[in-house]
Computed example of a mutant assay.
Amino acid sequence: MIQKAFYNKFKQDLGSSDAINEYIEVLLRQFESYTSDESSFQSIASRYGIRVNDVSPQVAICKIREYYIVSVYQVFEEFLNQMHAFLKEYGVYKENKDSSTSMLKHIHVNLVGMKKTSENAYLYYLICDYYRLIRNLCAHTDNINKAQNVYQKLFERKDEINVLFQKLQAPNRYDNINFDDFILYSRASKKLAEIYISNIEYDIDKIITNFDIGHLRVYRNNPKRLSKALETEIKFSFCMKPETVKMVVDMIVKMI
């Protein structure tokens, strides 16, 4: 299925990105376990002919962990853009997005709705939106107040977060992001992506209009063969109820 394909790609790409971050974290912790004072760090750097004296090791390590958030954002944002394109082509969807609205919010409103209740979907959304804002702060494209406001909402629901994501000391304030924040963001984005995929509502007219039927015209004189071929392709491409598949097949057959 098309939507399953890019969902699986999202998980695969995120897994690869996460693995690199985990590898870096091991190296950082190894370094921290030995020493993190300025003179020792400069001694290590000089051993490799590298001059690093603009920031302290502590500040550099904090920034590296912020970049974990950036890496998750990039992979998740690509998934959201693919979802946006897919819904425009095949879904019941408000296509026009206001430039001031994030892709995350636009997709969420369309597929799930902004239900500010105990439902997990909204909590996953808040988590992902918070780290989206953290990413923006890393890129100097947003203000701290936005992140603080979302952080406060998450702080008020910390017990729920602890139930869903046990053993994580996160979320943390924007100025104290650590490895657990990265893990929380990665896991929440996967949960949210799964919810989005399961909430797709197809626009039958769009599917009929955009479905490639050219290669099936060879079966136009064999209605049974044509219907069977169409049914197979539609089932492979879209997650639809059997009665909906039959309706789509019948409508396309009439067009050929």
Rank of each mutant, 00 (worst) to 15 (best):
K4L: 08
F6S: 02
K9I: 11
F10K: 01
K11I: 02
Q12A: 03
Q12Y: 01
N21E: 13
N21I: 05
E22D: 14
Q30C: 14
S43N: 11
I44N: 09
I44D: 12
R47T: 12
R47W: 03
V52D: 09
Q58W: 09
Q58C: 11
V59K: 03
I61W: 01
I64P: 05
I64K: 08
S71P: 02
Q74E: 15
F79L: 02
Q82W: 00
M83G: 04
Y90C: 11
Y93T: 09
Y93I: 13
K94C: 04
S100V: 07
T101Q: 12
S102L: 04
I107R: 04
K116N: 11
K116A: 11
T117A: 02
E119N: 09
Y122M: 13
L123N: 04
L126G: 11
L137F: 00
H140Q: 10
T141I: 15
T141N: 10
N143F: 01
I144K: 05
Q148E: 14
E156C: 03
R157N: 15
D159I: 10
V163A: 08
L164I: 07
F165I: 05
Q169P: 09
D181E: 07
S186F: 02
R187W: 01
R187F: 00
K190D: 02
I200N: 06
Y202N: 05
K206I: 04
V218I: 15
L226E: 07
S227H: 03
K228E: 15
S237D: 15
P242Q: 07
E243L: 14
V245M: 08
K246M: 15
V249T: 10
V249G: 08
K254N: 15
M255S: 11
